[in-house]
């Protein structure tokens, strides 16, 4: 696959909004045409070549385009926004809104990602080797529930911030590390897998979908009811060993309680009392 390298040699200090540089828009352009494309550097509009050192070649079809960002990539905002095919790789950290409204293709971030990674994503794959900040796959401010990520996959190898999968209604988010409070806030579908610990308040206001916390979680929200114990569960082809305590909720958001929160019992001995509660419930049912 032909690769175009964009190297940000000098720290621009201010954010660069790079949403125009995606495979769909640069495919079949020559390097000099790409160099003339305009990006926002803070409040100024500058030519790409004024900011980046550009080399490599551009594929003729969007799906054959691979863009690599290097240098002070932590200043980049909106990397891969609305991209629908091809590949973007960032050799370093990246700022807010990476992969926002992404429709397809592959976005690889070798460092960490800023807030709103994969916000309102439709499809495609995002892989972050470092950590991701808050609102991974989330919706915008002031939007009603279920306006977040609709499809695709986000994999974060490090930790994730607060409100992972805010308003999510489809797709999968896998966090290898731990996450901050409120994963799955306002979610109505899709899957969130947290392999590490969760700070708490998981699944607040969820009306559907499932959240799996394989590590420790300090408390479960009072609006979740314990439902069953499962030996294991499969997520995206991966088997997560249990036993898993399954909660349903959030009753404060919807009486139907169709959201599922699964917590590894082995790593959470302090949740033992729910097991007892469950035993009592079964007795009552019998």
């Amino acid at each position: 696959m032909p690769i175009i390298n964009l190297n940000l040699i000098k720290d621009p200090i201010v954010p660069i909004e790079i949403e125009t540089i995606i495979p769909n828009k640069i495919a079949s352009l020559t390097l000099s045409e790409v160099a003339k494309m305009v990006v926002w550097v803070g409040k100024k509009q500058l030519k790409l070549s004024d900011v980046f050192q550009i080399e490599g070649e551009v594929g003729s079809k969007p799906e054959e385009v691979k863009i690599v960002f290097k240098g002070y990539t932590n200043r980049l905002r909106r990397v891969g926004e609305k991209m629908s095919t091809g590949e973007i790789e960032v050799l370093g950290d990246v700022g807010p809104y990476a992969g926002r409204k992404m429709k397809g293709g592959r976005l690889v971030i070798r460092g960490s990602a800023g807030p709103c990674l994969g916000a309102k994503m439709y499809d495609g794959i995002i892989e972050v080797f470092g950590s991701a900040e808050d609102r991974v796959g989330g919706s915008y401010r002031g939007e009603l529930p279920a306006k977040g990520m609709r499809g695709g996959t986000i994999i974060v190898h490090g930790n994730a911030g607060a409100e992972v999968g805010l308003g999510m209604r489809g797709g999968t988010i896998i966090v290898d590390g731990s996450c901050d409070i409120m994963p799955g806030l306002d979610m109505s579908g899709g899957t969130i897998l947290i392999k590490g610990d969760c700070t708490g308040k998981a699944g607040a206001r969820m009306t559907g979908g499932r959240i799996i916390v394989a590590g420790r979680i300090s408390t479960i929200l009072p609006s979740f009811y314990v439902d069953e114990i499962r030996p294991s569960i499969k997520v995206a082809g991966e088997k997560i060993d249990g036993p898993l305590l399954v909660f349903v909720g959030d009753v404060a958001a919807s009486e139907k309680c169709s959201g599922r929160l699964m917590v590894n019992l082995k790593n959470n001995p302090h949740l033992k009392r729910y097991e007892e509660l469950l035993a009592e419930k079964v007795e009552v049912d019998l």
């Binding site: 409040k43 807030p115 808050d134």
Partner: peptide, 25 residues
């Protein structure tokens, strides 16, 4: 208002976050 029209997202455009990321000049 960097593009001349208003945009908003606390966490990205809030003062503390901007300063911590060192994005204003």
């Amino acid at each position: 208002l960097s593009r001349g029209y208003p945009r908003y997202n606390p966490g990205v455009t809030t003062t503390i976050d901007l300063l911590v990321r060192g994005e204003v000049d």
